[in-house]
Nucleic acid binder design. Structure first.
Length: 273
DNA sequence: ATATGGCCCTGGTTGC
DNA sequence: TGCAACCAGGGCCATA
């Protein structure tokens, strides 16, 4: 599932291929989802606009667009679970579950493919120069003290807190489990009862694995691929995620799996307290 | 306000 | 071997 490192990889890859190009044509599927902005509004607004820049904001991919008369707009893409953004030759037939195909001035097409339709496409107007903002704090740049303050007084588990996008945005199931393992914290602990020192350690562990994962092009576990259709390699670095029953790489005891916040949660009973 | 659980979706895996 | 039931989970919404 695409989380911060995967979304960052896709955004950078797409930026390198489509920056500066004009959107000449728009094709959209007939489904209600994944369109957050109506299909008709999107199909009418996009043609003629120029892509100035593509970047990540939380788990969202933001396209800065210019060329409108009534002020700048952004095209915001959320990959959900199975969403893919691909730049491909316009001649290639549309893959199954394609929901958007933007014809570009280069002759190529930017395509959004999403089997499960948990992804979202939206058109956002830029108000007073402020672009789209994600719901929470940015994990890669939040200061340790601000990170610690996020969890103060909270009774939910630290795992659920890490997944809550209004606190930190960008962390999903893989990096929540992996950062908790590296910080030695059991996922079931109440977020507000963890010591400052342990939260600072979690802050460091989370930033470290997110940076490492970005370097490796993300984790390819379900059908995640980057803008070229190429898989990432961070899954080779997973120490607990999807390793249920396998020996802990530190102590050798079997990795446990429980369900927390409705998500599969993997951890070592011995190494995480 | 905060926390929890159900729901949406399809494809891969599991089990008979 | 074939088929059906089951499971995965990000974000949103109703509920407690």
């Amino acid at each position: 599932m695409p989380e911060l490192p995967e979304v960052e990889t896709v955004a950078n890859g797409v930026d390198a291929r489509v920056r500066g190009q004009r959107i000449d044509s728009v094709w959209l599927s007939r489904y209600k989802e994944p369109f957050k902005t109506s299909r008709s509004e999107m199909a009418e607004a996009l043609p003629g606009l120029r892509i100035e820049r593509v970047y990540r904001e939380g788990k969202h991919i933001v396209f800065d667009l210019s060329g409108t008369e009534g002020g700048a707009v952004q095209w915001v893409v959320h990959l959900g679970m199975t969403g893919r953004l691909l730049v491909s030759a316009a001649e290639l037939p549309l893959a199954k579950h394609t929901h958007a195909a933007l014809g570009l001035s280069s002759g190529q097409e930017l395509r959004f493919v999403d089997a499960r339709r948990f992804g979202r496409l939206a058109l956002v107007r830029v108000e007073n120069g402020a672009g789209f903002r994600g719901p929470g704090h940015e994990p890669l740049s939040i200061a340790p003290e601000d990170f610690v303050a996020l969890f103060r007084g909270r009774t939910l588990t630290i795992k659920a807190a890490l997944l809550n996008q209004t606190l930190l945005h960008g962390v999903g199931n893989i990096y929540a489990d992996e950062s908790l393992f590296r910080a030695g914290i059991r996922p079931t602990r109440a977020a507000g009862r963890l010591s400052r020192a342990r939260l600072v350690r979690l802050h460091g562990a989370l930033q470290e694995i997110l940076r490492k994962a970005i370097e490796l092009g993300g984790s390819s576990v379900s059908d995640y691929v980057d803008a070229d259709g190429v898989a990432g390699f961070f899954q080779l670095e997973h120490r607990v995620y999807m390793r249920t029953g396998e020996p802990c790489l530190v102590c050798g005891r079997p990795i446990h799996r429980i369900v927390l916040a409705g998500r599969g949660t993997h951890f070592c009973l011995h190494c995480q307290r």
